[in-house]
């Protein structure tokens, strides 16, 4: 059965607190923290971008998989912050893990769900026998306009998944997607920051798609929330995540490991891949996981995953997600503005 052969996470070291951003814009930090359930966010340094994050995560995934990188037949990088408008990120990643030149590669875009779309594409190519292994990465260095509500959450990070059929640490029991044309969040060509539909991003966008994808998958698989040991959902903030988890009937012990946004912010395409990597770090063979991404625009990909006994052989072969969560250095708004190139010179 097609499954996960290796996984790896990466989160930049720098953090900015909600208090520090709120201080600059004269807002009440407690109201923001309570409203969003986000306390701080990860910030990339000047020499980090989606490509470097994707490479670090992929190298960690390779360490766990112990495969020859030349056996990777496809590399897909899902992001909404590719370093170039034209010139793929995926070729940089493929070269930096020494998988070139016999492979196919492409960059994917679908707001925050481009990473899980890459996983599905790799599943299909592996299942059909066209490739032996596929590498799918979700990574972002998301930007919010200065002073916009998104600035408190738009963060950086990513995770990589090597998909294959042999020596899997987790098997895909099934996948299901739910997609409609919904303009809840967008960024036009040439514009530095995205715009969003305010309250419209909630009910008809995030909640509708995540709930339909999760329920659609459970109906297809004949499962209920209690059949899963863990779950993870897209997490633009902590509040949406907990509300969607509870609405679907999941309990805290099921959703707690998947929720990272309160500590690192919304890593966009990296969010579900990173939440899933934290679950994999904590779970045991035989346990079952439900993962549901969300991308504005809009769509959700849901996955039903069963962990194999092999998981404990690979967990310690690369830094765990918790290592990156705890490795942090706080910066002030001025350094943040410099790192994020918000000051034009």
């Amino acid at each position: 059965m097609v499954g996960i052969v290796g996984y790896g996470a990466y989160i930049p070291k720098y953090r900015i607190k909600v208090e520090e951003i709120a201080r600059v814009w004269n807002k009440d930090p407690n109201a923001i923290k309570k409203g969003l359930l986000v306390y701080e966010k990860a910030v990339p340094s000047l020499d980090e971008d989606t490509a470097t994050i994707a490479v670090e995560a992929s190298r960690n995934a390779l360490k766990r998989s112990e495969i020859n990188p030349k056996d990777i037949g496809a590399v897909y990088v899902g992001s909404e912050s590719h370093p170039y408008a034209v010139k793929p990120t995926s070729t940089i990643v493929a070269e930096a893990i020494d998988a070139t030149p016999e492979l196919t590669a492409a960059d994917l875009e679908f707001a925050c769900k481009a990473g899980t779309a890459g996983i599905q594409m790799c599943m299909g190519l592996v299942e059909s026998g066209l490739i032996k292994y596929g590498l799918a990465i979700g990574a972002d260095t998301a930007q919010g306009a200065p002073g916009d509500a998104l600035e408190y959450t738009a963060a950086a990070g990513g995770a990589a998944y090597i998909i294959g059929k042999s020596n899997v640490i987790a098997e895909f029991n099934g996948t299901y997607s739910y997609t409609t044309d919904t303009p809840d969040f967008w960024r036009r060509e040439g514009k530095p920051y995205p715009r969003h539909g305010g309250r419209f991003t909630g009910e008809p966008a995030y909640f509708k798609h995540v709930i339909n994808a999760a329920e659609g998958l459970m109906e297809k698989m004949g499962t209920k929330p209690e059949d899963y040991d863990y779950c993870v959902f897209h997490q633009p903030n902590g509040k949406f995540y907990i509300r969607v988890a509870k609405t679907l009937g999941f309990k805290e012990e099921q959703y707690k490991y998947g929720l990272l946004t309160p500590q690192i912010g919304n890593t966009y395409s990296g969010a579900v891949p990173l939440g899933l990597s934290n679950i994999l770090d904590h779970c045991e063979g035989g346990e079952r996981v439900l993962a549901v991404s969300y991308g504005s625009g809009a769509g959700s990909d849901a996955f039903d995953i069963t962990i194999t006994e092999r998981i404990n052989k690979v967990k310690d072969k690369a830094p765990k997600t918790a290592y990156y969560l705890e490795r942090k250095e706080y910066i002030d708004y001025a350094i943040y503005a410099k790192f994020r190139r918000k000051i034009k010179m």
Binding site: L46, D47, E48, D49, T52, V55, E56, R59, A96
Partner: peptide, 10 residues
């Protein structure tokens, strides 16, 4: 000081 390689923008 022990160090390891990372991939960055130059």
């Amino acid at each position: 000081m022990p160090v390891e390689v990372v991939f960055r923008r130059i």
